[in-house]
């Protein structure tokens, strides 16, 4: 029996049309780079210390002294934004690194070994899936107190099953590919094939997904701070800034809330664009 190979007609009729997004992609990378640099070099970039109060300008609009204006306590918004980028970016980074490492290892184990290990891990993932990440983070706060540490650990655990399930599906698909059988026939050991060949082959797709996760985690951690359960004032943080500015919004002072909100949206859009572009370029869909 011959495997039907797609004929020219089929390829032409179904070819996904390549579209040029490189400019948008470059801009997105630029946004992330600028934000990262600002966060790292905050003391050099910010015009004022984040908690310096200017009593002459409370809820002031943009001016030469305060480019983005000030908040209800007279603190410079630009400076708080720059310092706030530190917690805003660090939290998601830790979560993405943690969940990717845990998830890839467990996913590789489940997908490669199969059998009862797969069944047990699958059940564990199922249970963890039932806890949406934000819920797990809120529960962690309820147990261990407010701040960034408990939510970051909770979210690493909450996101790990997503990474693991993706890795597992990819590994399972790779495992049935003849190239893996070919390695076996050549005498290579299972561990070598799994770690040296299969894992690197699935890493780009998992990496693209983790990039997308970064955006979600950033939004969720900022949301947690917005609820007053995450980063605590006076530490500058985008979510906390919006929380503090809420009362001002009802009074018509939009800027203190809008400035950090725009920052969140900008970074998340940029990260999403990067993640989607990466997965497009890799061209590997999630095997169902």
């Amino acid at each position: 029996m011959t495997t039907p190979t797609p004929t020219l007609a089929v390829k032409v009729l179904r070819a996904p049309r390549a579209h040029r997004t490189s400019l948008v992609f470059a801009i997105a990378c630029g946004v992330v780079a600028v934000m990262t640099l600002a966060a790292v070099f905050a003391p050099f970039v910010a015009p004022y210390p984040p908690d310096a109060v200017d009593f002459t300008a409370v809820n002031a609009g943009p001016s030469a002294a305060h480019w983005l204006g000030t908040d209800g306590l007279g603190r410079d918004l630009l400076s708080r934004l720059v310092y706030g980028a530190r917690t805003a970016l660090l939290g998601p980074l830790l979560v993405v690194i943690g969940s990717t490492i845990i998830g890839m290892l467990l996913g590789l184990l489940a997908g490669w070994r199969g059998g009862w290990i797969d069944a047990v891990l699958g059940r564990v993932f199922d249970v963890l899936f039932a806890f949406p990440s934000l819920l797990l983070a809120i529960m962690a706060v309820a147990l261990f107190g407010k701040g960034l540490v408990a939510p970051v650990i909770a979210m690493s655990i909450a996101y790990a099953p997503f990474v693991a399930r993706l890795t597992r599906a990819l590994v399972k698909a790779e495992r049935t590919r003849p190239y893996v059988a070919a390695y076996r026939v050549q005498g290579f050991g299972g561990a070598w094939i799994a770690f040296r060949r299969v894992l690197p082959n699935v890493t780009p797709i998992v990496g693209a997904q983790s990039t997308l996760n970064f955006g979600y985690v950033l939004a969720e951690l900022a949301g947690l701070s917005f609820l007053g359960l995450g980063v605590q004032p006076p530490t500058p943080d985008w979510g906390a800034m919006i929380n503090e500015a809420q009362s001002g919004v009802a009074g018509g002072y939009f800027l203190p809330a809008i400035v950090p909100a725009v920052a969140v949206v900008l970074v998340v859009v940029a990260v999403n664009i990067i993640g989607e572009e990466l997965s497009d370029r890799i061209g590997g869909g999630v095997p169902a």
Partner: peptide
Amino acid sequence: LTVLSAIPSFVGSIVLIAIFAV
């Protein structure tokens, strides 16, 4: 959709309040 995907609910809430309510 990509832009919308980057609007977390707290940002959406604030913007909607600012525009349509206040």
